[in-house]
């Protein structure tokens, strides 16, 4: 039994102009499908990474799971105790007018958990005295620690982490990533870790899903995905990661850009950028079979 189960979950957003403008300009309603038929199982204790470029729907998946959005279609089943979330922007995720103590205590007071603020602050590497301060007195990394303390105050067994280190400097990012894996080990947490940075995901995730224009195009154990990527988009992403080792490995130049999600390409939405696309890819949406959604892979062409 997975801890969390997403079954063909979709989410639409109405991005139409206001009613009056629409009538005057004879424009139809415009619906943006941010998440399209996403299915995903997450087991207790594992870390699933979700990667993709901006606008691929990964943050929407996070918000669907914690209930900030309701799914337009599909079902989300959660069998655990409680979900909490860690956000990307350490500057926007803490109320600037609240003292740290009150921020961390909010879930305790509201949910009635038997946690202690001082203990939580210590757990994330802050001093209990820091509770008296305001968020602006802390650096980005320390704020992200406060954010984690607040999430832990709700006694979650599942943490949804939406780009938790993207706004941080690398040396601080390392601190936060180490802290998170430490907490996972001690508290038996399950993570959904969302990031645009493949290197970061490769450090934390047991399994990784790759999203493109609202769909999961590949899902595989991390070791396999990073050593033997199957979907052409995954390969392209991996090729685009700057090479710190300066091995001078040959790289396929990346082609094109993410298309406008309001008017996604027909068939496989990746086909305009794909070196292996053929007539079928332009016509037919590939089914997600055996961890990948690609005609070329399933036909054995690549």
């Amino acid at each position: 039994m997975p801890l969390l189960k997403l079954e063909r979950v979709s989410r639409d957003f109405d991005v139409s102009p206001p009613w009056l403008n629409r009538v005057l300009d004879h424009e139809p309603r415009r619906i943006l499908r941010a998440v399209d038929q996403v299915s995903l199982d997450i087991d207790k204790g594992e870390t699933v990474g979700l990667v993709g470029e901006s606008g691929c729907g990964k943050s929407t998946v996070a918000r669907l799971i914690v209930g900030l959005y309701a799914p337009t279609e599909g079902r989300i089943e959660y069998r655990g105790r409680r979900l909490q979330m860690i956000f990307q922007d350490p500057y926007a995720s803490l109320n600037p007018r609240w003292r740290v103590h009150d921020i961390v205590a909010e879930p305790i007071r509201f949910l009635g958990t038997p946690q202690k603020v001082e203990e939580l602050l210590r757990q994330v590497g802050l001093s209990p005295d820091d509770g008296e301060k305001y968020p602006h007195e802390f650096s980005g990394g320390q704020r992200q620690r406060i954010s984690i303390a607040r999430a832990l105050a709700g006694e979650p067994d599942f943490l949804v982490c939406d780009e938790p280190t993207s706004a941080l400097d690398v040396s601080v990012q390392a601190q936060i990533l180490n802290l998170m894996s430490d907490l996972q080990r001690r508290l038996g947490l399950t993570y959904l870790f969302i990031s645009h940075n493949l290197a970061v995901v490769s450090q934390v995730a047991d399994r990784v899903g790759v999203m493109y224009l609202g769909r999961i195009v590949e899902l595989a154990p991390a070791a396999q995905l990073f050593s033997r990527p199957r979907h052409p988009y995954t390969r392209m992403l991996l090729d685009a990661v700057p090479d710190l080792g300066m091995s001078g490995r040959p790289r396929t130049p990346v082609r094109g850009e993410v298309p406008n999600p309001l008017a996604p390409p027909s068939g496989c939405t990746f086909h305009p950028r794909c070196p292996h696309a053929n007539e079928r890819c332009r016509r037919e949406v590939p089914a997600f079979i055996d961890g990948v959604a690609c005609h070329a892979v399933l036909e054995g062409r690549i």
């Binding site: 040396s171 990533l177 180490n178 493949l198 290197a199 490769s202 450090q203 990661v241 710190l244 080792g245």
Partner: peptide, 13 residues
């Protein structure tokens, strides 16, 4: 040392 790298064997950063 704090920069995460792909395919490196996973060890604390």
């Amino acid at each position: 040392g704090s920069i995460p790298r792909i395919a490196a064997k996973r060890s604390p950063l």
